[in-house]
Design a protein around this nucleic acid. Structure first.
Lengths: 202, 202
DNA sequence: CGAGTGATTGACTTAGATCAATGACCGTGG
DNA sequence: CCACGGTCATTGATCTAAGTCAATCACTCG
């Protein structure tokens, strides 16, 4: 979610940075909301923990993304934010953001549009999570995350991370990728996945 | 999603109603966006169709809910809207809504807050979809949809509808409910499900 | 050089999808 | 008024794919 659109100088002036180590929590469910965070360095994941103790990954935010936008209108966070890597985040305090929005309607509009965008991408995610087949799920991910050429996907983080993001066991992901590679639908190359012509057929 | 908060008289004046028969499409993926719809009577579901031809239910909107909010900022719809029952919907045209927002910042603000709310509930939905166990999924649904007393859930529509909404086969849902009833965790009563004390334990 | 983690593969188990059949309950037209 | 077609609700049998447990290898970090 691009920050530029709704980020006014007044907001930036009120912001502050914070460093996180890999595994460190930025905030937890129920914490009082401070504001919106932008990822400056690294990756931060939003998760909930289900009763069996498993982490469910709601979102993985990379550099330039913002998280906790909804917190502007909520007194406390509704999920955990955990640094997946060492990371630096920038906090835009709630009050500063909200007051900037009342000053400049265009900012508010851009922010709203961004939220609308998020709603759509979350819907896509719901759709993806509805797919039971590991192969289809992986395909769905690959086609949704291919670069402009549609032939290449750059992996963020480890395959294990990806497995969690996809809601698959890491073993299932390894196996699925292995099968796709064996059948020639993809080629793997150190942090990247190349989609071959066969990718669509399978 | 409550309409009242952001619905100004100017918007209402520009709105119009439309009747739908059960199964009829309000709009389809790719259609040009007309605006936001409010459900006046009946239920409308938002779905996508995956490549195997299965419907994936993204959302079921009931009376008073609005759908396609994100369409304000998008040139075309990104999912299908199908009437689950005979229904009446009210269209608030894009232009009227957007211009009302520029007139009155509080409306825009309320709308934004509503979107933020939706983001959260979609996140919850993603979480739910990540649960593999049918029993846990059903439990998750029941606890998320219990009334104020926390002891009763009123079903909207048929069990088959619910199964689709939960992303389960209808057989799996029947079986799961049967087991829960047999173990005494729930009682069923014509369109309602009563949660007993045991409900939490299981 | 060990400890820790990721990547990978094998073996086994299980829960849910799928196919199938049945009964109940409409509404409808003859 | 009732037989008939349609849908929902329900249950049984079977199959498959993904989870789980477990072991191995490679790599990195201190």
């Amino acid at each position: 979610m691009p920050v530029k659109d709704w980020l006014a100088p007044a907001i930036r002036a009120a912001s502050s940075e914070r460093k996180l180590e890999a595994g460190e929590a930025l905030f937890r469910v129920g914490d009082k909301t401070a504001g919106v965070y932008e990822i400056v360095v690294g990756r931060v994941r939003l998760v909930r923990v289900d009763r069996s103790g498993h982490e469910v990954v709601l979102h993985v935010a990379g550099v330039g993304d913002t998280i906790a936008e909804a917190s502007l209108y909520s007194p406390h966070y509704h999920c955990d934010a955990i640094a997946s890597t060492d990371a630096v985040v920038r906090l835009y305090p709630k009050a500063a953001v909200l007051s900037a929005f009342t000053q400049d309607a265009r900012l508010a509009q851009a922010f709203t549009a961004m939220l609308a965008q998020q709603v759509m991408s979350l819907r896509t995610r719901v759709e993806q999570r509805n797919i039971r087949s590991a192969r289809e799920r992986v395909r769905h991910y690959l086609s949704a995350n291919a670069d402009a050429t549609g032939r290449q996907v750059t992996l963020r983080g480890t395959l294990k991370d990806l497995a969690a993001e996809l809601g698959l066991s890491h073993e299932a992901l390894y196996r699925t990728l292995a099968v796709l590679e064996r059948t020639g639908a993809i080629k793997r190359d150190k942090g990247r996945i190349l989609l071959t012509g066969k990718a669509k057929a399978l």
